[in-house]
């Protein structure tokens, strides 16, 4: 069975049915980027609780379905415009960037393309350098071309290595801009208008599979957590080999994010043993023969 990895999906808004279906389709791991929740938060505490669930409860939830769970941490552009709160969030961010299972800074970038967004974007690019982490960049839905150009310019200006950056939500118009750089290329496949499996396959035919990454970006809106395996099937139908499928939909995202030094490819080829924690405990700890020392 082909193994898949979805490197951009907001599982906090998804149900346990989704997890079951994803596991059944061969998805062995996910990355959950910190993003906004559909409406702006008004206090630092809401951010802290959200970040804590990304490294805590959500990871545990995924493990119950055999799925490896990683996350990225960052202040998203939509919420960067509340300056007071943004400063508070940026101040707590470093402690999350140090945690296990945090494999990038993100989603960061532009939304309305304001000076305040740019300030937060640049600050977080600096943090990525400091913590030696890759960067997941969100490109805006409005003025996508202008936003993508400014994104690439800012990355150069701050001096983050391009190979440590994935520019996400690309389409036919913005992908060529990123192809001129060393950045990795992210594509989110949606049910409706933005980008479909067939359009994705056409891009792969035209531009090849190097540094190409595909995700579902599924969240609380109309979206589909099975878009990665569905893209795999569309690739096979279009004549790509199983090896190509695995390169784009498994190897590439893992090669990119494992630049963090916090994830390795081999263990991701197999699902976590379901209820791993219980097994681990019963086998080696809870029923273990470890002598009582005291």
């Amino acid at each position: 069975m082909t193994v898949y990895f979805d490197p951009h999906i907001h599982m906090i808004s998804r149900t346990t049915d989704d997890y079951q279906n994803m596991a059944a389709e061969g998805i062995t791991g996910v990355i959950e980027p910190a993003f906004w929740q559909g409406q702006v938060r008004t206090s630092l505490g809401s951010f802290i609780d959200y970040f804590d669930s990304l490294i805590g409860w959500e990871r545990f939830r995924a493990s119950q379905f055999g799925i490896h769970h990683f996350c990225t941490m960052g202040l998203n552009p939509k919420e960067a415009n509340d300056k007071g709160l943004a400063d508070e969030v940026l101040a707590v961010l470093p402690r999350y960037l140090a945690k296990d299972g945090v494999v990038a800074v993100g989603e960061i970038g532009y939304d309305d393309i304001t000076p305040q967004e740019e300030l937060c974007f640049a600050t977080q690019l600096e943090l990525a350098k400091e913590f030696e982490l890759p960067v997941l960049v969100h490109t805006p839905h409005r003025d996508k071309i202008g936003g993508t150009k400014r994104t690439l310019a800012l990355i150069r200006e701050v001096g983050v290595k391009e190979s440590m950056v994935v520019v996400d939500h690309l389409n036919e118009l913005t992908l060529p801009l990123v192809l001129e750089t060393e950045c990795w290329r992210g594509h989110s496949i949606y049910p409706d208008t933005k980008m479909s499996e067939q359009r994705m396959v056409a891009l792969l035919k035209q531009y090849g599979t190097d540094k190409m990454i595909v995700n579902s970006a599924a969240d609380w809106g109309v979206s589909d957590p099975l878009k990665v395996p569905k893209t795999g099937r569309a690739m096979l139908d279009a004549g790509f080999s199983t090896k190509d499928v695995e390169k784009v939909l498994f190897d590439n995202p893992i090669d990119f994010f494992s630049q963090s030094g916090r994830m390795q490819k081999e263990p991701l080829r197999t699902p976590l043993p379901i209820d791993q924690r219980r097994l681990w405990q019963e086998n080696s700890a809870l029923r273990g023969q470890n002598p009582v020392v005291q």
Binding site: A98, D100, A285, N290, V292, V293, Q294
Partner: peptide
Amino acid sequence: MARRKLGEEVYPGFPLPGH
């Protein structure tokens, strides 16, 4: 950072019971 820097091997010498 401690897990990444120190590893996850069993350490038998700690003066409390358990794993």
